[in-house]
Amino acid sequence: MTSSDTAVRERVTQVLRANADDIADRWVQLQREQAVLGSDLTEGELHEEADALVAALSAALEGGGRPQSLVHTHEDLNRNVTDLSLRRARGGASPTLASLAVQALKQALLEAVRRVSHESDEILAAALLINQLLDAAGALSFEVYVEGREEIIRRQSRQLLEMSTPVVRLWRKVLAVPLIGTLDTARTQIVMENLLQAIQDDQALVAIIDITGVPTVDTAVAQHLMQTVKAVRLMGADCVISGIRPPIAQTIAQLGIDLSTILTRATLADALAAAIPLTDTPGPDGTDAR
């Protein structure tokens, strides 16, 4: 780093320190002006965010390191930029608004430098430094924004899966899971988890898996069904599969899928009728204890 670089850096840091409140206020004002599309953030939240980030920025500049990488190496600055972006991603702000936020800070900062400095060389050098610093921040902010949105999508699809696999109580010690849609690995894991937990909570003896709403049963789906049945049995409960429509029964037969070890019924009503006798605890030689 040359001595002039150091001088510019000190100058910018000084400006930041001396005008921290003004810069933060101006930044908030610029963001309010841009926010035509609206954002969930209140004025107070924006101010709080701005104060923290401006403070982190001057702290980062005072420490060492290349301006381009400060946003990655300075922990406090990194966290502030990340949080700012995640807040916008979660709050439903548009990607434009999220990236304009950092741009607006650049403008606020440049204005502050221009107010105290009148030498064009110095302003140019300061602008270069601010650009290096905040362009990196903008890039990080964009990446975090995308990541934040992806996280939301992941969470929502997971919630959707959870909602589409309810476990209902049909009878004393009899639970049922009506499956709607296909049964892939992720879905199977959720069904198993919800069902087994419900079995434990209710001390249920029979679980009915109703596949009326499952459009097709191929080898993979059958395998996932078998897995669920096996897990239910390991818990010490029984399993009945219901809702096998004629075309699906044919497919199962044609594919040579062996479901012979599983009790199956055509309808949920038939399955319940088959399940209720199973809830009587058998005696030592299979006789009814009650």
């Binding site: 990655h72 975090v144 990541e147």
Partner: peptide
């Protein structure tokens, strides 16, 4: 709580 996202994403 969501795990804190710090560092270089991706």
């Amino acid at each position: 709580a969501a795990p804190r996202t710090t560092g270089v994403p991706g």
